[in-house]
Each structure stands twice: as structure tokens, then as C-alpha cells.
Design a protein around this nucleic acid. Structure first.
Lengths: 346, 346
DNA sequence: GTTTAGCACTCGATTACGGCGAGTGCTAAC
DNA sequence: GTTAGCACTCGCCGTAATCGAGTGCTAAAC
């Protein structure tokens, strides 16, 4: 059997309707649409075909049809046309990024909030993966007899610092020399890719302090990696507004999975490579997510994709709108973060 | 009418039973208990009295009785005896604090997790209120031409740092002198109590840089206060396990309030003064919390109460056990944090 | 005076049932 | 290929009947 244009049109109509109402769609409903000039009976025949092809499902005889995961996949890939946000919506999003946000975690929180408030789904934002960023130089500054501050400057112009312990009696000069040597050796390396092996290749004064430097680097890496593991959440309870989660146990299962964050972290960090990703129902690896859809997008600092964000909602998600909104939010978010670090560079 | 010993005993029996089963308690159930030698009819009479006195409520005629908020209050104040944890429970809690936890926020997260896993209620932990801590000294260290690091050392021996911008051309010496002057002036002041007014009283070189110093202090205060506003949550979905939240709208209302965090922050920060606090049902200020109970306790660094934590559960909470557990967790938590900062002092 | 057995009564929960209506699949006519 | 007609299915909803846990009251027993 072939999926001709008419079948497509009918399928689209069914999906559109189901996205709005969450109720099984009958042939009459479709026949009444202004853009469809067929009788209910004809539609019924087509629907039977579509069901046979796996695009529709019937909760029970004598109910209408609902789209299957496969139908949504087709919809996202071929039928759906990119939605355009209204001016008001674009303004709403922009406005929420125009106020003073001067810390990364504020921006992340704000993004989660805007995303959930605008989509009415559950929003999640993976914090910037700063540990994957490239090193420009390390600055070691003594602050007490046995303590120093390691200041990392990245190639995006961002700085991060971390208090470290130094061997007693190490002079400020020695510390500075060590910093310079480290900078020279590891410039343009990704922070998380500097390994112990590379320390062993060092020589001279630097080699002698290998142990100290390694410990220092670990502590810097650890503190940056930890930030990067955090997933900001907003609107988790939004899912309770959708009838598909009227069932207490279903709702609990999903909410619990969301609360754990591990699954979310996994999904978001895997999605940091692809600009947009849509996972529908059973396409999700994690079992607890197999009856909902997850849409993710990435954001950047400068030109580097540095993190991702997404929404979780029922499979009958309004994909076109969500993707449009996430595009807009991604742009705003990238812009704010990029400015933030550009500014820091000066 | 008087609340004699027998009435007390019956009330306690009803509360005990209701805490376990969440079902209205009938006279027969109580009469069958091994420690009560009265017939159902007698119990019924007593129950009618207790209802008249406001300790019991009847969901409808011909159902059993359930304890009122007033009954729980009496129970917590007078009837309940402090529960003793089993060795296994104490060990469980201790074990979860014995592993390496070297950042404040890890300890906070761990506490929330342990508390919810041990009580099966929703747990919340207010991060240490570091901004209320007393200043020992400020160290200003230049790290770039127009940037310096402000390092705050508190009287608990803890350090915190924050990157600040400095006027171009300020010499390292000047910076050091300013740090010294600030330290001398504000030693032993609470960080959050240093106000603009006090700057105006300064003189000499320090006065000239008043604006810069004020800006710096604000930024340090802001960054510390922000940490202190964070409320860590764990087990939010636990409430879905209690039949009182079978109702979808009730569950959503509470979960939404919990997700907002504002209410939780308010409750926890108010509770930072009292070692233990129990708020039952309508004793809670916030409307969304009026059908549940909130138990909080404080934790310390050294001798200073520095934060609080608590659980949210149905009013038929097992108060005795919860209080015992929170006592134990409070001790472990205080110990870990105190060690952490004692160690930092060396 | 207190306690208890007995009993009529209340009321939510559960089950059973019939009608309604949305929707289908099939057949036959166009 | 399309459509009107029709018998049929099945979940939903409202009503009625039944059940049972639990009560309050009365009167007798202690």
C-alpha cells in the first residue's frame, strides 16, 4: 500500500486534531474540516489503511483513531512545517533575556523557566559543559602561605578559579614559572582531556612538581565537571496538566524519573552534538520516557556548542511550535552567554 | 470536660493507628488492642467526647474518627515519647556521611537524599547561610590589570573568593592596604550587616576608594547571599505514595508549591532560629501547606546555627521517628561541616 | 455512676444495569 | 473510486440496589 498525498493530508488532520484535544479522532471530525472534501465513509477507508500501515491505533473498537509513534515520526520528518512565532512570543522570550543576568547559573535557571512557561511542558537545561572548553592559560596566584588560586582562562575568554593547596615554602616566583610552563604545554588542550600520561612527559622544574600539578589540575577539572553535570529543571508539574498523566502511577513513574536527573543528564549530554533532536515515545532509550517525547536543542558560546536544553511532554506534543520556540530561545541564550564571556575578556 | 488519662490513652491509640493506616479509626479497632480493656461502646462514648473537645473529626457519619490538627499538636507536645532509632538506622545515616564529601553543596545534596530516603517524606535542606557569618579578614589579590580577587576569611576559618573589577592603575600595594583597612574596620561584623552608611564613616585613602570598595562588598555579599538562598530538595514525589494525595489536584497543588521553592525557603529560613520546629496542618502560614506537616531542624558549624533542613509530609506523620531521625542527621551534618571548615583553617 | 450489649440507623463504596452516543465496518448503490 | 445506509460495538454515565463499617442511643448489668 502506498502513502499517497491524500493519506498524508488525512493523517496530518488527525494528528493536528489529536494534538489539540487528546481525544481519539473520528472520521466525521475530519470530514467536517474546511480543507477536506470527502465523506466520512471515505475517510474511514483511508483510516483503516493508515491503521494497517501502522500510523494509527484504535484504543478499542468504536473509538476514533489516535496517531502512533510512527505517525509522529513521519509528521516531524515530512509533514510538519516550521511554525512561525508571533511577534508577541518572540518579544516575550527576548524580554526575559534582556534583564541583567550576570551569572551563568542565573541564565541557566532563567532559560529553564522561560522554556517551561512558554511551552507548558517540563523544561530542562544542561549547564554549559565548561570542562570541554580549550585552555588558553593558567595563572597561579599565592594567597596564603600554603594556598594559591588557580585561575583558568579559556579560549572563549572566560575565567574560572579554584583555591588549591601548595607545598609549603614554594615561592611566588616558582609558582609563576609553573603556571607559565603549564600554559605553554597545555594551551589549546581541552580541559577534560589532559591526562596523567601527559604529565610524565614533562621535565625540569615542572617535572619535580608533577604530583602537585596533577593534584591541582584534578581539582580544577573536578570542580568544572561538577558544574557541568547539573541539570536545571522547571515546570516538572506541568505534565500533570495533560490527561495522559491522569493515571497516578504513570504520573509518579515519570515524575520520579525526572526527579532523579540522571536520565535527563544522559539524554542532554548525548544531545550536545546535534542542533535539534526529537525523540518520540519508544525512540527513547530510557524505559520511563517511552510514553513521552523529548525535544532537545543545543546552545553555544561563540561558535562552540557548549550545552543543550530540552522539553519533556506527551507524544502528542506540538512539535512545530516547540521547535520554533526552542530555536528562538537557543539564539537568545547563546547570545547572552557569548556576550557574557566576550565582556569578561576585556 | 476534662482530658483524663483514659481519654489520652484512647487518643494516642487512634493517632497511632491512623498514622499507620490513613483510614478512619473505629471503636472496635481500638477495643481490640492488647493494652485497652474497654468495650467498643465505652470507646464510642469517649470518642464522642474527644470529638466535642476538638481532637477528633468524622469525615461523615458512620465512618470512624480521624485526629484533628489539634490532636497532633497535643500528641507532639505531650503524648509522644522520643523514639529511639535502631542501631541499623543510626549506622545507615552515619555511613552516608562517612564517604568523602568535600564540597558544601555535596554535603547539602547528600543530606537531602538521606533525609528523604530514611523518612520516605519530601526532604529539603537550606544551604548554609554563609552571609550571616562574621568576617575575620579580607584579602585583595590582583590577578590582572583590572581585576582582583577578593578572598573572605570568616571567623569559622572558612574562605570564599570572588573575582572583582578594580580601577585601572591601582597598584598591588594600594590594594593590599585597602584590604587591611577594610579588615580592621569590619572585623567581627556579620557580612550581611555591613551597609553603605558605615562606608561613609571611613576616611583617608580608604574613603577615596569608597565607591570601589562598596561595589566590591556588594558583589561579595550578593554571591554569598545567593548561595544561601538555594534549597536542595529530594523525594518530592514521595508524597504521591500517601493516599491523602490520591487526588490529582491536591497533589498538583502541593507539588507545584514545592517546586517553586520560595515557600520552602521562607519556612526554612524562619526556622533557622529554633532547634526543632513542628508545624501541623493549619499552623502553616502558607496556604498550600495547610494540609500537611512540616518538621524542621537546624544544623551548625562549630557552635553557630547556620542553616536548617526539614521534611514535608501528611499531617499523620510519624513525628517521633522523624524527630529522632532529624536529630541524628543534624548531628552528622553539623559534624561533617564543622570538620570541613576546621580543616580548611589549617 | 460507669460499663456494656443490643439495635436501628446512616452513609459511602461497590456492583449491576440500561440507555446513550460516538464511531466503526460492511454492503450496496452511484 | 466514492458515498449513503445500517447494524453493531463498546466505553461512558446516571440510577438503583446492596453491602458493611461504624455510629448514637437506650436499657440493662455491674
Amino acid at each position: 500500500m502506498e502513502l499517497d498525498a491524500r493519506k498524508m493530508q488525512i493523517l496530518q488532520a488527525i494528528i493536528d486534531d489529536y494534538i489539540m484535544t487528546a481525544a481519539p479522532v473520528g472520521s466525521r471530525t475530519i470530514a467536517k474540516r474546511a480543507d477536506i472534501f470527502l465523506s466520512p465513509a471515505t475517510i474511514r477507508n483511508e483510516m483503516a489503511d493508515l491503521e494497517e500501515m501502522g500510523f494509527l491505533e484504535q484504543p478499542h473498537t468504536s473509538a476514533g483513531r489516535i496517531p502512533s509513534d510512527k505517525a509522529y515520526r513521519l509528521y516531524v520528518n515530512s509533514i510538519m512545517q516550521r511554525a512561525k512565532l508571533t511577534d508577541a512570543e518572540v518579544r516575550y522570550i527576548r524580554d526575559h533575556y534582556s534583564k541583567r543576568l550576570d551569572e551563568v547559573d542565573e541564565v541557566v535557571k532563567q532559560t529553564a523557566w522561560v522554556l517551561s512557561s512558554v511551552t507548558k511542558y517540563t523544561a530542562m537545561v544542561l549547564a554549559p559543559q565548561l570542562h570541554t572548553i580549550k585552555l588558553k592559560y593558567i595563572h597561579l596566584v599565592p594567597i596564603a602561605e600554603d594556598k594559591a588560586l588557580a585561575i583558568i582562562v579559556t579560549d572563549t575568554g572566560m575565567t574560572r578559579d579554584s583555591v588549591i593547596r601548595i607545598p609549603r615554602g614554594m615561592s611566588p616566583d616558582a609558582l609563576e614559572r609553573l603556571g607559565k610552563a603549564m600554559s605553554a604545554r597545555f594551551q589549546n588542550c581541552r580541559l577534560d582531556e589532559i591526562t596523567l600520561a601527559e604529565f610524565n612527559a614533562l621535565s625540569g622544574e615542572v617535572a619535580a612538581e608533577r604530583e602537585f600539578l596533577d593534584g591541582m589540575l584534578r581539582s580544577v577539572q573536578r570542580s568544572m565537571a561538577k558544574d557541568g553535570r547539573s541539570v536545571e529543571l522547571s515546570g516538572a508539574t506541568n505534565i500533570l496538566n495533560y490527561p495522559e498523566y491522569n493515571d497516578r502511577d504513570r504520573a509518579r513513574a515519570l515524575l520520579t524519573a525526572i526527579e532523579e536527573r540522571d536520565v535527563l543528564y544522559k539524554m542532554l549530554s548525548e544531545a550536545t552534538n546535534v542542533e535539534f533532536s526529537v525523540r518520540i515515545g519508544n525512540e527513547n532509550e530510557d524505559e520511563s520516557m517511552q510514553d513521552c517525547s523529548v525535544v532537545t536543542a543545543t546552545y553555544k558560546i561563540g561558535k562552540n556548542p557548549i550545552g543543550s536544553f530540552g522539553v519533556i511532554g506527551p507524544t502528542r506534543m506540538d512539535y512545530a511550535r516547540v521547535l520554533a520556540m526552542m530555536g528562538q530561545i537557543g539564539r537568545s541564550l547563546s547570545e547572552v552567554l557569548t556576550n557574557m564571556f566576550e565582556e569578561e575578556r576585556n
